[in-house]
Design a binder for these strands. Structure first.
Lengths: 238, 238
DNA sequence: GAGTGGTCTAGACCACAAT
DNA sequence: TTGTGGTCTAGACCACTCC
């Protein structure tokens, strides 16, 4: 028998999605345009309203269209205005490049929040915090200094971890269900002790990532991650 | 009449999603666990299978669970391993902060690609390119130097644009259907002419975003965007 | 009130996996 | 063969918008 090239017909809701996307791509339907109603599509495609509804609902979830109950379905604003950068766990990132990762623990202590730290953690002054300072190496070259404070109530076992094996990030993800992250990326000059740990000059800029994580409506952890500007970049594709 | 605090009951599919999410958050259902079948949920919640299907399908789209036809629905790997940074159009970003944006065009020229540029654009040496240099101001403070090369074949009308009104980014999005973006974020010291345009010292680090866009399987544009490290950060929430 | 989307039902048939 | 998810139907009722 001949090798047949059987194509399964795409699902009806997929065909409708493609139809709408094609109209938008071709420019026939432009930003803000009202597109046909669900009822109209049921006739055009000979399908039930639930099927049309699924197609349009998924396009709305993808922000291709937006829908206003009682009014209709409209073409959404062009996307691609934003580029997304993915910031990964440093250990995974290094391993993904085929290199070896090693963490060097420089400091692990328990202390009490001063006023500024209490404000950052949205708690009261004197609350127990853990503080760790770890230098991450990629094939024996220092690539990140991770300076981290952790709310002791959220991750009480923090100090019992072996941070040469798992990063604090990995531990915290298991210990405290993450509910949110705030981050900021900056370019700054390193203070002397950071320059020393990264084995760079104080005249070389650093790329820093500040990251605050939330768990159970509390601030779980505040971290500052320093990277040598010459060797480290955030990069990606969309 | 008393001010009533009427709560509309959440939709059934939402209640089911919440139920599953709560079980996962509490740790009752762990990564890789098989969760109840659609049929089981119809009985638990007293709803039809379509309603359960929608709830689980949406959770699968969000990568909370994964589904294998014939086998069942399983809890997916923990997320939040990655943090996403959104890089917006500079003009939109400034306006969103409630400030005024102004673009100052310093250079707009047509030239021919040298060998290095030809390699970057994946074309032949001598191909026509446009080159623009724009300084973006936020409330009269320079916030970005945008140095951009554009493939003339992809956007032939580039030089006819008024870049004090719309950013090159906005124009290119309309002129050339975007198919992909590569980017890189770095921390570097500014060369003298950039420091001058940003009105900063040569000892102040810059945050730079390099961005290459693709259209129709060709490189449409290569841009380097310089920002003063002291005033500009990438930030966001997830 | 007419038109639109938001949700839901109670079935149905199919494809795929495990046995 | 049985159980699972993937899709679809032909209705239904509701909430909201606009006239």
């Amino acid at each position: 028998m001949q090798a047949t090239d059987e194509q399964k017909a795409p699902a009806a809701f997929q065909r409708i999605k493609e139809h709408v996307l094609a109209r938008i791509r071709s420019g026939e339907w432009k930003e803000g345009d009202l597109i046909p109603t669900e009822e109209a599509f049921t006739k055009t495609f000979g399908v039930s309203r639930m099927t049309v509804n699924r197609a349009l609902r998924e396009l709305a979830a993808d922000q291709v269209v937006f829908r206003i109950q009682g009014s209709g379905t409209f073409v959404a604003q062009q996307k691609f205005q934003a580029t997304l950068v993915e910031i990964k766990n440093i250990a995974d990132e290094i391993k993904a490049r085929g290199h070896s990762h090693r963490g060097e623990l420089h400091l692990l202590e328990r202390l009490h929040a001063d006023e500024q730290q209490a404000a950052e953690f949205d708690t009261k002054s004197g609350a127990a915090l853990f503080h760790s300072l770890i230098v991450h190496f990629e094939d024996e070259a220092p690539i990140q200094v991770e300076d981290r404070w952790v709310h002791a109530e959220v991750a009480p076992d923090y100090m019992a971890q072996d941070f040469t094996r798992a990063t604090p990030n990995e531990y915290l993800m298991k210990a405290a269900p993450l509910q949110g992250v705030q981050y900021r990326i900056e370019a700054v000059m390193p203070p002397p002790h950071v320059a020393g740990m990264l084995q760079i000059s104080e005249q070389e800029p650093c790329l820093i990532l500040r990251r605050k994580t939330f768990s159970g409506n509390r601030v779980a952890s505040v971290a500052v991650m320093w990277h040598p500007g010459r060797k480290y970049q955030f990069s990606g594709t969309i």
